Simulated scan of single mutants.
Amino acid sequence: MSGRRVLITAGASGIGLGLAKRFAAEGDQLAICDADGDAIAQVKAGHPDFIAHHADVTDEAQMDAFLAQVEDVWGGVDVVCANAGIGGPAGRIEDLDYGAWRDCVGVNLFGAFLTCRWAARVMRAQKSGLIILTSSTAGLFGYPLRSPYAAAKWGIVGLTKTLAMELGGANVRVNCICPGAVEGDRMERVLANESAATGTPIEDLRAAYVDCTSLKSWVSVDDLADMALFLASPAASKVSGQILAVDGHTESIN
């Protein structure tokens, strides 16, 4: 086996799959999990060399089984991308359902905890490694009508800073990528939810997401992969505890 050992949660679609393909193109070994069993099956068919496991990041037993498999096969890990997340409900806080709030925070934040708890133990023992967490520009600003998502993504920022402090002495780096509006199916679902909550046409919301950035553009999965690959490269050997926005520079919240 050659190349880095890279683990990515929610790696069967969207940002996670984009990251996996780019790391694989660099010659790295990949292990992914995803709550979507059909998506995992498709990845297995197209990438039989991947470790691909059907697991919900909020289910401790499922994650333990996935992570134990990775540790058994690889004996360690070099890069862990705690990437799993969901958009959650849209609406005023007084109108939100507790279960929907809990589920949003659970996937975005508690899933990161289960992933990072394992990564910290393994990387501390081997005295090397990189953890990349996926937050959002919602983790840098307030986000009206998306309170559970913003709360969870701010939590990811705090987790990043804390783990960088806890693990730095073991030569383990921890950083956080904050995407802006990323092209793809997930953002289309976000737009639909926000449109339903506000009555604003989807096309108006789409334009607003572009207008609130300095570069007046959406972000691509490749933009995020470029940042992840940089963080995993020797050029970033002293980059840790950083919250790195890849968003075209958000000037205001739409």
Score class of each variant (00 low, 15 high):
Glu166Phe: 00
Gly142His: 07
Asp34Glu: 04
Ser135Lys: 08
Gly76Glu: 06
Ala196Cys: 09
Arg206Thr: 07
Arg124Gln: 11
Ala197Asn: 07
Asn108Met: 12
Asp223Lys: 06
Gly46Pro: 06
Asp222Phe: 08
Phe230Met: 04
Ile131Arg: 12
Gly158His: 03
Val77Thr: 01
Ala208Arg: 12
Val221Glu: 12
Ala65Asn: 10
Ser237Asp: 12
Ile86Phe: 00
Phe230Arg: 12
Ala164Leu: 06
Gly76Tyr: 03
Val246Met: 05
Leu215Thr: 03
Ile15Val: 06
Glu194Pro: 00
Ala192Arg: 15
Ala125Pro: 01
Ile131His: 11
Ser128Gln: 08
Val210Gly: 06
Gln62Ile: 01
Leu167Gln: 04
Asp38His: 12
Ile156Ala: 00
Asp36Val: 00
Gln42Asn: 11
Val80Lys: 11
Cys212Tyr: 00
Ala236Leu: 07
Cys33Tyr: 04
Trp218Ser: 15
Gly88Met: 01
Glu188Cys: 09
Gly3Ser: 05
Thr162Arg: 09
Gly111Arg: 05
Arg189His: 15
Lys161Leu: 14
Trp118Thr: 02
Ala164Val: 02
His47Lys: 08
Arg124Pro: 07
Tyr143Trp: 13
Pro201Val: 01
Leu224His: 07
Ser128Asp: 10
Ser128Val: 06
Arg5Ile: 04
Ala196Ile: 03
Asp28Thr: 02
Ile156Glu: 01
Asn108Gln: 05
Gly18Pro: 01
Met165Lys: 14
Trp218Cys: 15
Gly27Phe: 06
Glu203Thr: 09
Cys178Ser: 11
Leu191Lys: 08
Val57Arg: 01
